[in-house]
Amino acid sequence: MSAPLIDPFLRAVTYLRVSVTDRCDLRCSYCMSENMKFLPKRELLTLEELDRLSSAFIRLGVRKLRITGGEPLVRRGIMSYVEAMSRHLQSGALDELTLTTNATQMHRFAADLVSLGVRRVNISLDTLDERKFGEITRWGRLGQVLRGIDAAQEAGLRVKINTVALKGFNEDELFPLVEWCTGRDMDLTFIEVMPMGDMGTEDRLDQYWSLRDLRARLGERYRLTDLAERSGGPARYVRLEETGQKIGFITPLTHNFCESCNRVRLTCTGELYMCLGQEDRADLRPSLRDPAAVPLEEAIRNAIARKPKGHDFDYSRQSVSGQMPRHMSHTGG
Rank of each mutant, 00 (worst) to 15 (best):
G183N: 14
H107G: 12
A110P: 02
L73G: 11
R23K: 15
N170I: 04
M85D: 04
K160I: 01
A293P: 15
Y237F: 15
K160F: 04
G310N: 09
S29M: 12
C261F: 02
L113F: 08
V159W: 04
C258A: 06
E220N: 11
R87N: 11
G156Q: 09
A293G: 13
L253R: 07
L188C: 04
R42I: 12
D25S: 12
E241T: 06
N170A: 06
C275Y: 00
L16S: 02
L113H: 11
F57C: 01
D206W: 11
H255K: 15
I300D: 00
G148T: 00
T127A: 01
A235Y: 03
T163M: 07
L174K: 13
R52M: 09
F190V: 10
Y315P: 02
R76Q: 13
H311T: 13
L174G: 13
T98L: 01
K307E: 06
W180G: 05
P295N: 08
L166K: 01
E48G: 14
A305C: 03
V294Q: 07
R236Q: 15
T254W: 04
L166R: 01
T201N: 15
P72A: 04
H88C: 06
V320T: 05
C28A: 09
L45D: 10
F169T: 12
E229N: 11
H88Q: 10
L174E: 13
R76K: 15
R27Q: 09
P176W: 04
K64A: 10
E96T: 15
L266V: 14
L142K: 05
S80Q: 14
T267L: 05
V294P: 13
I149G: 01
G232I: 03
F57L: 02
M106N: 11
R66V: 13
V18N: 00
T254C: 12
E43A: 13
L97H: 00
A305V: 02
R141P: 03
P252C: 08
L94M: 11
L26F: 13
G148Y: 10
D22S: 12
G248I: 03
F249D: 00
A152I: 05
N170F: 04
T68Y: 12
R239F: 06
C181N: 10
N170D: 10
G117E: 05
Y237V: 03
D312A: 14
V114L: 10
G156E: 08
T137W: 02
N162T: 01
M196Y: 14
C275F: 02
Q278I: 08
R75P: 01
L39F: 13
T267D: 04
D51G: 08
N302A: 15
